[in-house]
Computed example of a mutant assay.
Amino acid sequence: MFGFFENEQTKKLKSHIVNLAALAKADGHIDEREMNFIVAVGQKNGMRAAEVRSLVGNTSSVKLVIPDNDSERFDQIFDLVDMMLADGVVDNHEMEFCIGMAEKLGFRRDIVAVLVRNISQGVKDGLPREQIKEQTQTLLGN
């Protein structure tokens, strides 16, 4: 699926998969539920499971590509937080990683911890992604 001439969307997807893998590894290993979550994100975006697993195994070859709009950046941090919660245990390394990734994705330093906590709480409460996104718009200044 991914050839020599990758488009921007493919680069963003691969970068997102790598970010998810890095978060999964933040506690020292990738748990089966975390890997299943990463594979599901890839499949939702047109990748085969084997491609996702291969990418996760070779993460050093992919550079971070920052989305160019708040909606895509929100979707990436949402997936990171959702995966952090996937194994039912949130350790400090995972939380710090999510906060750090939110900053790298271009969210303002003064709101990233609140953003991550709000997304986390929304996921725990079973709210749909779009509702959580709407609720966080005031934080993003939109």
Rank of each mutant, 00 (worst) to 15 (best):
G3Q: 05
K11L: 09
K11D: 01
K12R: 04
K12L: 09
K12H: 05
K14P: 07
S15C: 07
S15F: 08
I17L: 11
V18A: 03
N19D: 04
L20Q: 06
A21K: 04
A22Q: 14
A22G: 14
H29S: 13
H29D: 12
D31T: 00
E32D: 10
E32T: 09
E32H: 04
R33M: 10
E34V: 02
M35E: 10
M35Y: 07
F37T: 05
A40C: 02
A40Y: 07
G42C: 09
G46T: 05
R53T: 04
G57Y: 00
N58G: 07
T59Y: 12
T59W: 13
T59S: 11
S60T: 10
S61A: 13
K63H: 07
I66P: 03
D68P: 02
N69C: 02
S71C: 00
E72N: 05
E72R: 08
R73H: 01
Q76E: 14
Q76D: 07
I77K: 15
I77E: 12
L80P: 15
L85H: 07
A86V: 06
V89L: 01
H93R: 15
C98V: 13
A102M: 08
G106Y: 05
R108W: 02
R109L: 01
D110M: 14
I111P: 04
I111M: 14
V112W: 01
A113N: 02
V116N: 01
R117T: 06
R117S: 12
S120E: 06
S120L: 06
S120T: 00
Q121H: 09
G122Q: 03
V123S: 05
D125N: 14
L127K: 15
E130P: 05
E134C: 03
Q135T: 00
Q135I: 09
Q137K: 13
L139R: 09
G141P: 13
